[in-house]
């Protein structure tokens, strides 16, 4: 009975794994097939004559520029959000702040507001102040989207670093800022990394903000570039799946690298978001 339930559990897991990863592996397989084998009946699970022609085609169309844009936007936004968020989070924990309950409510409330709900007025506002379709608009917006979360995570995790450690560092001859940098930040590192990962995924995976805030091809994110590519090339599934794989590798790699912090943070309930 026990062995049976153990076996059925394992089978269920295997099935779950296949359902989760199967579609992605299928896309990877498709992206490596020559165009004339893509619609083969029955479908070839593994490419018989693998080719990189679809990847080459995407590169020829300049996919790497969009890739770089997405990376730069995400990295800048995450850095800005972490710096501002950690600063505010620290102050909200250790200092008296004017109107603190209201400030906390602003961060907590906006943490849950999806950027999409205010995207349209944001576009109008950005247009009227001349930020629409510029290099800076996406990092600013992305940073604003993930900032409340960064503040929240910093605040709750800085609180787990004993005040005495900071006092000890101050007495050891360091300024308050140095004490925070050398003692508090390292103490909250796992949570900050979890917030950074979360933020990176948000930025990299966005499509609606990117597609509505910039028009110029050279400013496009990878997601937007892919949809444009689909528009031009319609059912060139090999190239589209190559695009899917290219767009999937960075977030999945980041997720795999930092999954320990992400899963740990959310599972112990300390990184609520």
């Amino acid at each position: 009975m026990k062995i049976l339930s153990r076996a059925s559990l394992l089978i269920a897991c295997l099935l779950a794994g296949i359902i989760a990863l199967g579609p992605i592996l299928w896309a990877a397989s498709t992206s490596l097939k020559p165009t004339n084998r893509i619609f083969a009946v029955p479908p070839e699970i593994l490419p018989q004559n693998p080719t990189l022609e679809h990847y080459a085609k995407l590169l020829a169309e300049g996919v790497h520029w969009a890739f770089l844009n997405s990376s730069a936007y995400a990295v800048v936004a995450v850095l800005v959000a972490l710096i501002l968020g950690a600063t505010a989070g620290y102050a909200l924990m250790r200092y008296p702040v004017a109107g603190k309950p209201a400030v906390l409510l602003v961060f907590m409330g906006t943490m849950a507001v999806p950027g999409f709900a205010v995207l349209l007025p944001t576009q109008m506002l950005a247009t009227s102040i001349g930020l629409h379709d510029t290099w800076s608009i996406l990092p600013i917006l992305y940073a604003g989207h993930i900032l409340p979360f960064a503040v929240w995570v910093s605040r709750s995790h800085f609180a787990t670093v004993p005040r005495e450690l900071e006092q000890a560092a101050e007495m050891d001859g360091y300024s308050r800022a140095e004490a925070v940098w050398k003692i508090v930040i390292p103490g909250a590192k796992p949570a900050l990394l979890a917030a950074a990962t979360f933020g990176f995924l948000h930025c990299w995976n966005d499509y609606v903000t990117g597609s509505t805030m910039v028009d110029s091809p050279e400013l496009r994110t990878l997601q937007v570039a892919l949809i444009f590519f689909q528009g031009f090339h319609g059912r060139d599934w090999g190239s589209l799946m190559a695009g899917v794989i290219i767009a999937t590798i960075p977030p999945v790699v980041v997720f795999l690298l930092f999954r320990k912090f992400l899963i740990g943070g959310f599972a112990d309930g300390s990184v609520k978001g």
């Binding site: 004993p162 005495e164 450690l165 006092q167 000890a168 560092a169 101050e170 007495m171 050891d172 001859g173 360091y174 300024s175 050398k182 003692i183 390292p186 103490g187 590192k189």
Partner: peptide, 30 residues
């Protein structure tokens, strides 16, 4: 005066050792 400017040392009840530093780094920190 700020704590850092007083040239005093304090041993806390909880010891306040820096958890991410080795013993050597802890002692060398000041």
């Amino acid at each position: 005066m700020k704590p850092a400017d007083r040239d005093i040392a304090m041993v806390f009840q909880s010891y306040a050792l820096y958890p991410h530093m080795t013993l050597y780094e802890n002692i060398a920190f000041p």
